[in-house]
Write a protein that binds this DNA or RNA. Structure first.
Lengths: 131, 131
DNA sequence: TTAAAGCTTCCAGTCACTGGAAGGTCAAGA
DNA sequence: TCTTGACCTTCCAGTGACTGGAAGCTTTAA
């Protein structure tokens, strides 16, 4: 199938698919006219990539997961390990954002937000607040 | 003061300060030897940038905040509006990450993680699971 | 026949830096 | 005086994961 069809089926933009070929994540054959010709297996890989990217795995993690996917003998523990380290990463990000939100909310609440120039947010950014 | 001192005082890497000059966030004078010469005002800007970047404002938001910072007449409402939209953005990211974590945790829990090859995580990524 | 849609490659841009090379300047010590 | 090392300069390239656009093929439908 052509790249347009593969794009539709995998829910990945055409540009992204070409990029994935560039970095060796998929290797479609070429038709006589030079067009990429995606097999069912290629499509499976693309769908796999779409799903794993949308779950927040990096390209390199996806590459690793793909090779585990295609190695019928690998231990499920290997896959679980990657997933759990990703969960820890997500957790770290969540708590970072939560403390960020806390600071921003405190600042925002302290600012009366009218048309006068006095502003505790700016004062804090400028390092002039009591903290 | 030289860039090294400015870097220490502002807690910004030397490279980052040069980059900020490149994009017009700070405009230090030059000494006769060609070295950048940072004034106290320049240092204030750098500290302001360090703090606002660390609170998750983008460079363009920082640029806007800086100009509000230096406009003694601006309304505090303007600053508060930027801060609140940033809070909403942080909120969106948090809930995205939370639902991501949910999916990953469900997948991880379903995988027994031993040396056998059967793995519900991979099955899900491949789109072979019941969902 | 022709127009539009779809395909190709290649180059550049995004964001916010970061690394490294090649070279100039300055201060301290032998 | 010389040298060493720290510090400074510019410029170019790379990061991650695409995305946009130009120029030019091929295919399909009217």
């Amino acid at each position: 199938m052509n790249i347009g069809t593969a794009s539709e089926q995998s829910q990945l933009p055409v540009k992204t698919i070409r990029y994935y070929e560039d970095i060796g994540l998929v290797r479609p054959l070429r038709s006589d006219n030079g067009y990429r010709d995606f097999s069912e297996t290629d499509l499976q890989r693309l769908k796999f990539l779409q799903r794993s990217r949308s779950l927040g795995f990096s390209i390199e993690e996806c590459r690793e997961l793909l090779s585990l996917y295609e190695d019928g003998d690998r231990a499920s523990a290997d896959v679980k390990a990657i997933t759990q380290s990703k969960i820890r990463e997500v957790d770290r990000k969540i708590s970072e954002l939560q403390s960020l939100k806390k600071v921003l909310t405190t600042l925002s609440d302290a600012c009366h937000g009218d048309d006068r120039p006095t502003c505790p947010i700016i004062d804090d950014l400028a390092g002039e607040a009591d903290r």
